[in-house]
Simulated scan of single mutants.
Amino acid sequence: MRKRVPLNAIRAFEATARMSSVVKAADELCVTPTAVSHQIRLLEDFLQIQLFIRKNSRIELTTDARANVARITQALDLINEAVLCLEKSDEDVRRRLSVSASASVVSLWLMPRLSEFMKTAPEVDLNVRTFLSRKEAESQESDIRICNWQSQLDCQIEPLIEEEIIPVCAPEIAAQYGGNARDILANAPLVHVDRIQDGLDGTYPDWARYLTEYGVSRSDLSHGARFNQAGTAMEAADAGVGVILGRSLLIEKAIARGTLVPVAESYPIRSPYFMLSPWKTDGRETMQRFKDWIVGKVRTNELVHAI
């Protein structure tokens, strides 16, 4: 525990020692010379030592005081710098923004667009975080979360987008089956994504649900490459490993490039995404700017449908 030192008295002593004058110290501290002399006497009483030798109108530091005054000056400079940093912190907070989403959404949907936001808001210090599960997402600190579940957090929850599930594969695989959708679904190798079972991906169909919906029968539904993340599964499909139930949020760039092609109809049930943010955003214009920007990107997205 720190000893309670009289900071006002220390400031009076340091200013007087630095200027070798009570009058000049009083002017710097915006007090009277009498007040400075009083504070110095308080400090001498507190320390039980003499700090100055008074010779008529002149004062001189004692040996002990001279040995320590430089360190006291450095300490007061550090305090001053720290306080100035605190004065700037409100503005710094307004400029900072943390955004979190699943690793696949960040890498395949958000990242290709972020340069546009940063060009419109170059002063913003953006911190992008990823998560792999609902538990991880809701336990980490973040200003804005993009997630595909109805959270129980005490925050503002806004519908953002709906995502379609579309079977896609590399063009060369589609060509092997003449581009026939039923032949591709019935015979092409399947790529699987093992969904996390804590609510993060609970609304997405697997191959059994999708093929049943469209009356396609396969005896090898459990076979094929398996991945625990949608992003790496998409990379595998892009490399020609097989057909994947692609999430429209993640596959749009690959379809635009032509490295993946749609195979058949999308699953009839869409999966919603939500944007989570604090109830109160007073003084956080940066947060609202990002929210407005991302909603605008959703509205211009051809494969992802705005709610």
Rank of each mutant, 00 (worst) to 15 (best):
C155L: 12
S277H: 14
I49D: 06
T120G: 03
P112E: 01
E28P: 02
F13A: 05
R96G: 13
L43H: 09
D27N: 06
P205D: 03
A67Y: 00
S57N: 07
W109T: 01
K24S: 08
C30S: 13
E265C: 03
M1S: 14
L7V: 15
W149K: 07
M111A: 09
G199D: 08
I166T: 10
N301T: 07
L249R: 00
G283Q: 10
R54G: 03
Q152F: 00
A70N: 15
N80Q: 12
R129K: 13
E28C: 10
G178S: 13
V298Q: 11
S248R: 02
A67P: 11
R71E: 13
V23C: 01
S266I: 00
L221R: 09
R18L: 08
A101K: 02
R2G: 10
E265W: 04
L114N: 04
D194I: 13
L260Q: 09
V304T: 09
S104C: 12
T232A: 14
A239Q: 09
A239F: 03
N228E: 07
P272H: 05
L185C: 05
S21C: 05
V243I: 06
L185M: 07
G179L: 05
L260H: 01
E164R: 06
R66P: 12
R270C: 07
T130D: 00
S248H: 02
T300C: 09
R145C: 05
L43I: 07
S271C: 06
D220A: 05
V298K: 13
D154W: 12
V128D: 00
R145K: 13
R54V: 11
D194N: 12
P189C: 08
R129N: 04
W149L: 01
I173V: 10
S21Y: 12
C85Q: 14
A103P: 00
V193I: 14
L84N: 14
D201G: 05
T203L: 12
S271F: 02
K55P: 05
H223W: 01
R11C: 07
Q152L: 10
I184K: 11
A70S: 15
I72S: 09
H192P: 07
L276T: 02
S271I: 03
P268A: 08
E91T: 08
A67Q: 15
N56W: 00
E252C: 01
S104A: 15
F131W: 11
D77E: 14
Y177A: 11
A175C: 05
E172P: 02
P272S: 10
I53T: 07
S104F: 04
N228H: 09
F46W: 13
I294D: 14
Q288R: 10
L110A: 01
A137V: 06
A264F: 15
K297Y: 07
R18W: 04
I251C: 02
